[in-house]
Design a protein around this nucleic acid. Structure first.
Lengths: 341, 341
DNA sequence: AAATTATAGTTAAACGTTTAACCAAAATTA
DNA sequence: TAATTTTGGTTAAACGTTTAACTATAATTT
């Protein structure tokens, strides 16, 4: 049978309270007894019962992680990496993560994640854009909540966001520095704050460089920003615009779609068209040429969110912080000097 | 404050035991009192405390799900879908899933998943191939364990496996029926039981059709079976074999790699070469032509594993069952009649 | 009608911790 | 030296359930 604190106490010749004090580093215990207890713990291979701890503390030791299906299953392991970051950080903090996915079109009829209904979590991390109605219903349970890569318009939650503006500036300036002036911007799901910020950064970079912002070089829609969308948008762009020399895609998935379009239509990358993405999902090793992109530290995003949430849980006071994780320009082979001058 | 069973009891005018009996459908309770209790539960929005239940039952209500990093992060959402199946099924069974990833090169020094060390799970599901040393160390904790898509050579665990032989027969016969005779087989990680079975099925189909099995048409290695590997293997195959008219790749990822190679080298699919994969991961919508493949019901794999594990947990006796989930031939556009006759 | 059994419910112990309240001995202060 | 404080511990209550043991009443059997 699993050893309990009683077994440890007996073996060490102390009361169970003392064992508890040793484990939790509270109260004063002589180094001597402390060692005896520690030795007993080790020799019995004792691990405190989570259930018992949870029962007296009123906590669950769990944190819920919510993701939409499409984010979880998308080809590029963007959100899965974020989850990994959270899970990894949770190990050191002693929390377990309950991952659940919800349908992207979650509606009033759908039932909330079970861990919320059953109050089996101490807090929640929500990664990516989720429907409004869901946010409202979750907030009714007022569990501490942290959002990753999504800034819900209504409420003021702690946030862990990508420095999208900076990234977009980096990307656009990179193209400008290479001599490009006919720089297109392609992006789906433009209602998403992260993506609309990338558009904002793109525009700002152009303005700063005294390059006019042309609307026919900007292809955006509200559809899911995946490869297919990138392909379609590229088609739209190039069919009415022959002199584009560089494309900044809102994320790598769309950039890959653009790349497919360009290849299919005889454009050479980067000789004819430079292409830059965003995210650095780097899944597809076969991609030729390797994609220049803006690296988003995905593991870190997840880890930061967990830290933020744990802080909130410990301090009780929600510090409503907003963490902006920095991005980095990764130059590979899909961008080069503008030749068509 | 969260309502407890006491609050419900008081509100319904019964003892807490009666409330418990109502919840657990045990013992006799008059429909009348039952309704009173149910109404009280609803009006208070009462949810039993997991911690308390776990404490008295000695169970945790959690199930651990172990996956290697590369499986979790691979481009094709194969194992992620399996996880989704498990998680979904767990909802109806009332379990929570603790997902953790381990390094693919997990070794003696690495520490076991926390939920095992802390005994925070009632059972474990392991998806995909994992290192031997890990299996041994986990088995020391003798937690009920179910394997998905991997049959560890040493021990006799309950298994949920893909019907790989049947799938390979289906795939190869499909090509044979289209008139192909020079059918190649390409696959990495051939030590993996699932993949070596696909090879076995390939051979059997050829033999059954009186087509000689030629070793120079079989390209296998021990590397991870991803797109890159498929690309490399195709290169190897076609550089020494010009008359191949059909390729059966061990999984879709490798098939996609093969497709890339073929496209890059002027082969038309399916006009020059028919190509069939396995898994039906169907991630990459941009893939042209759409891949004929063997569909593996991934969600079902995960769900079956959970059911199997829960049964084991409830019956106490490990029924050491082996579930073989059926596969299905999905004909798309990457295969066609053999023209070179 | 008496004896037995089934039904519907209650009481209280147990699960494994944390922690407030307590206490004796040792150390410090006056 | 006596009074006070600190140190190093113990005892026992509490957390929210389940469930064995019990009881009173109703239903059934003889």
């Amino acid at each position: 049978m699993k050893p309990t604190i009683k077994d440890v106490a007996k073996k060490a010749g102390v009361s169970i309270a003392t064992v508890s004090f040793v484990i939790n580093k509270s109260k004063n215990v002589t180094p001597e007894t402390k060692n005896r207890v520690l030795k007993a713990i080790k020799s019995l291979n004792y691990h405190p019962s989570k259930s018992a701890i949870n029962l007296v503390s009123g906590k669950t030791g769990n944190i819920g992680f919510i993701l939409t299906d499409d984010h979880f299953l998308r080809t590029e392991p963007f959100y899965t990496k974020i989850f990994l970051g959270t899970e990894f950080e949770a190990r050191s903090e002693g929390y377990y993560i309950l991952l659940t996915s919800i349908k992207q079109d979650f509606n009033e009829k759908d039932i909330l994640p079970r861990f919320i209904l059953n109050k089996s979590v101490d807090g929640i991390i929500i990664a990516g854009k989720i429907p409004h109605s869901l946010i409202d219903r979750i907030s009714a349970y007022n569990l501490p909540t942290v959002f990753i890569d999504y800034n819900p318009p209504t409420n003021s939650y702690p946030l862990v966001l990508i420095d999208n503006i900076e990234g977009a500036l980096l990307a656009t300036n990179h193209l400008i520095n290479l001599g490009h002036t006919n720089i297109a911007f392609i992006c789906g799901d433009i209602e998403h704050p992260s993506l609309s910020e990338r558009l904002k950064g793109y525009k700002r970079a152009l303005v700063d460089a005294n390059i006019p912002v042309k609307n026919n070089l900007i292809i955006t829609d509200a559809k899911y920003p995946d490869r297919q969308n990138g392909f379609n948008s590229a088609k739209k762009l190039f069919s009415r615009n022959k002199n584009v020399t560089a494309v900044f895609a809102g994320n790598d998935a769309m950039a890959i779609g653009v790349l497919h379009y360009l290849k299919d239509n005889g454009y050479k990358v980067p000789q004819d068209v430079s292409l830059i993405g965003f995210d650095d999902v780097g899944g597809d090793i076969l991609l030729r040429p390797p994609l220049t992109t803006i690296r988003v530290p995905k593991i870190e995003l997840g880890a930061e969110a967990l830290k933020l949430l744990v802080n909130t849980l410990k301090n009780k006071k929600s510090l409503s912080k907003k963490i902006l994780v920095p991005v980095e320009l990764i130059i590979r082979e899909s961008t080069s000097f503008c030749k068509s001058k």
